[in-house]
């Protein structure tokens, strides 16, 4: 490492070290316990927090709910997002493409709270949908404070990121390959299944893992639209701070979540490498 490279890396290196120190102290805190009546932690270090968590059904249920919802959201994201990314990459109309980009970037910039609140007023008991049902004399539906509301709102939040990432990959696939397939007599369907789809697998792998990671970590939406009835890992950790200010126990649960995330990252990374080698030879 040259002197110059070291000096250039230094600022980022310091920030990384600080991040490392924080994460290390966090692992240590998860072994302590809260001193009753005071905001200090005390020892001796023990695995008591972990033992309690692993024995409780709530923590395991939160893991299961987190994984299940992330999986559902990811599948829906692919089904709904792929066609839009393809429209962006292939539409001959420049004004349509610009309009779609405008909508995507605009919603992405308008932030999470804005959209979480919008879903609250759309799905609420006195929200748009139930008002409409009432107007037609139909029974109202329970659309809020359940997994449905969480899936819809997280999907809505993740989709722009998914579409923008996938679009970047799809537009690098030459349209001439599809032309060739069509000219050789393949139907549009066959062309898509045998030419376009295989070529887009590496890009799809990247955007899908992004979508899964974002769903896994989603916090604001389950917190606001789950109404305490949908407990994912993120909300379960926050609840330990909000309800009892038990930082060591929250840290222990967060540390288990951290391990889960690392395992998932390693697995999806391996899968992506595998898929990249199989299709188009791109280790994306």
């Amino acid at each position: 490492m040259t002197r110059q490279a070291f000096l250039l890396s230094l600022p980022a290196l310091l920030l990384v070290c600080l991040f490392g120190v924080v994460m290390f102290s966090f692992a240590e805190i998860s072994l302590l316990s809260m001193k009753p009546g005071a905001a200090v932690f005390s020892g001796p270090p023990s695995l008591a927090n972990y033992e309690r968590l692993l024995a409780s059904s709530g923590a395991w249920r939160a893991v299961a709910t987190t994984m299940r919802l992330s999986f559902i959201i990811t599948v829906l994201c692919i089904v709904a997002g792929y066609p839009l990314a393809r429209v962006l990459a292939r539409s001959p109309s420049a004004s349509l493409r610009r309009f779609v980009l405008f909508c995507l970037v605009g919603t992405f910039l308008s932030g999470g709270v804005t959209r979480a609140y919008a879903w609250l007023i759309i799905l609420g008991n006195r929200g748009i949908i139930n008002r409409g049902l009432e107007a037609f004399g139909l029974p109202t539906l329970k659309l809020l404070n359940n997994e449905f509301a969480v899936v819809v709102s997280v999907l809505n939040f993740v989709l722009p990121f998914f579409v923008m990432t996938l679009f970047g990959a799809l537009k690098t696939i030459p349209a001439t390959l599809e032309d060739a397939s069509r000219n050789l007599g393949a139907s549009p369907m066959r062309t898509f299944l045998h030419v376009t789809l295989p070529l887009s697998i590496p890009g799809l792998a990247v955007s899908t893992s992004l979508c899964f990671a974002m769903s896994l970590g989603a916090f604001l939406f389950p917190q606001m639209l789950g109404g305490g009835r949908v407990q994912v890992l993120a909300t379960a950790i926050y609840e330990r701070i909000q309800a009892s200010y038990n930082i060591p126990e929250a840290a222990a649960l967060a540390f288990l979540f951290f391990i889960l995330v690392i395992v998932i990252l390693v697995v999806t990374g391996l899968l992506r490498r595998l898929v990249g080698r199989r299709f188009a030879g791109d280790p994306a």
Binding site: P83, V87, C103, R115, A118, A175, E178, D179, R182, N183
Partner: peptide, 29 residues
């Protein structure tokens, strides 16, 4: 010569429905 330029009708329909879903919350708020 056949040209496959364009997204295809099915992708177009689903894509536009997805776009509507993405921007849906904003007008209501």
């Amino acid at each position: 010569m056949t040209s496959s330029r364009g997204a295809g009708p099915i992708f177009m329909c689903v894509g536009m429905a997805t776009l509507a879903f993405i921007v849906l919350p904003l007008p209501f708020i």
